[in-house]
Structures are given as C-alpha cells and as structure tokens.
C-alpha cells in the first residue's frame, strides 16, 4: 500500500493529489480507483478530475469549496475503497503495419535486433491500458508496449506526423489524433477514431480501459479511411 498521499494546492481552484512516485500499474490502479470513487460520489464544488500518471488533479469552484474540504473528501474516498474495482471496457484499435504508413518499422527492427514481422508481432501481443490523456485532444497514453520493442524517444521531434499514427516510446503507445510533431517511433497507422465525432461519447477510451491492437491489411485500412 502507498505511504500517505501528497496534496499540493494549485492556484485558487485545484488540488494535486500524488499517489506514487514512479509510473507503475499499482499507482495507476490507485489513480483510476480514486477517479471513479470521486465520480460516484462527487464532493460539493467539484468541477473536474484529471488523472495523470502518478497523480490526479482535482479542479473545484473556489466559491463553493476550498483545498481543505477537497482534501478531506479525497482522504475519505481513499479510506473507503470501493468493494470491487471495475475493469474498464475492452477497446479495440485496428492497426495497419504497411511500411509506407509505419515509417519507423525498419528502424525499430534494426535497433531491437528483431525482424519487421517480429516487431509487429510484439506490438500486437501487448497488453495495453489507457493511463491518461494528455498533451493535446484525444492523445491517450497507453502503457503495455512489450519490452522487446521499447526504445527511448528520438533525439528530436519529427514534424508532420499524420493523424492516426501508431507511435511508441518506452512502455508507452499512442494513436495520434492530429497532424503534429512527434518524437516517438511511428510503427503503423490506425483508422480507429479516438475522437469519435459522437457528441454523447466523443472520446473512444476512458482512463483505465484495456486496449487490444488488431492487425488489418492495407486494403482494409484504405477502405475504412475512405468510408
């Protein structure tokens, strides 16, 4: 179990709750559990809870509550953990590993001493879980990239990485949503839309959801993107 959590005030409207020091599954599970507990029983004045990798940010209305009351509500949630943790909803991401779309496949293979097919097989075998969204709309940071294909990020970001790119660095994996610079390794492209366009459920994943990658052919990819 964690030592006592750390609380730090953020300006006049938020509290940062740190539940661990290193990025690991145990810390992440505690964050997801607290996030859900606060969603089930929100203290008065709560505006928003933002899960991070080792902490959560709790944003509140300073006219309705304060840092102290929010801290008390969090301590209460932590003292009464839910009986059974919910597992999240299994989500599927389709990935096309065509070398024209996964520009860095060959480079990842070379650096890891694997064949391109082995890199793809390793990526497909990963047991992914959404740890947080960050940086920009819909960028879901997933843990679970297998050790065999873990690489440090590139020394500098590459401009113009297409939306839908499947990128990896260290144990993390992201399916990008915008044309943006990225310093991670581009190993494929996905037609799966993280920004769903559905107003009732605009983002595919919830934090804590497990994710499975499924391989599709280039023809499938082209057809799905055209649709």
């Amino acid at each position: 179990m964690p030592s006592t959590p750390c609380f730090a005030p953020v300006a006049d409207h938020a509290l940062l709750v740190e539940l661990g020091e290193t990025i690991d599954d145990a810390t992440s599970d505690r964050i997801v559990a607290l996030d859900r507990a606060l969603a089930d029983d929100p203290p008065p004045g709560l505006r928003e809870v933002v899960p991070g990798l080792v902490n959560l940010l709790i944003d509140f209305d300073p006219c309705a509550t304060d840092h102290r009351q929010i801290e008390a509500a969090v301590r209460n949630c932590l003292a009464h953990p839910p009986a059974a943790g919910r597992a999240g909803t299994l989500r599927e991401v389709e990935v096309c590993y065509d070398p024209d779309l996964g520009h860095d496949l060959a480079s990842v293979a070379e650096q890891t001493g694997l064949s391109v097919d082995e890199v793809i097989a390793a990526h497909l075998s990963g047991d992914y879980r959404v740890r947080m969204y960050g940086f920009t709309p819909g960028y879901a940071y997933m843990s679970g990239t297998p050790e065999a294909i873990q690489l440090p990020r590139k020394p500098a970001a590459i401009r113009g990485v297409a939306a839908g790119s499947v990128i990896i660095a260290g144990p993390q994996c992201i399916v990008t949503t915008l044309l943006m610079p990225a310093g991670w390794w581009v190993i494929g492209r996905s037609p799966t839309r993280i920004l769903t366009g559905d107003l009732d459920h605009p983002f595919l994943f919830d934090v804590g959801d497990p994710v499975r990658m499924r391989r599709i052919t280039r023809a499938d990819y082209d057809r799905k993107v055209a649709a």
């Binding site: 953020v10 300006a11 409207h13 938020a14 940062l16 290193t22 990025i23 933002v50 899960p51 991070g52 990798l53 080792v54 902490n55 959560l56 940010l57 944003d59 947080m132 960050g134 940086f135 940071y141």
Partner: peptide, 10 residues
Amino acid sequence: IPSEPIVAGS
C-alpha cells in the same frame, strides 16, 4: 518527472 495535469496559469 512523470507527465502530469496542467491548468491555465501554471
């Protein structure tokens, strides 16, 4: 430092 949430004003 692990990446963590930010607010306007940080």
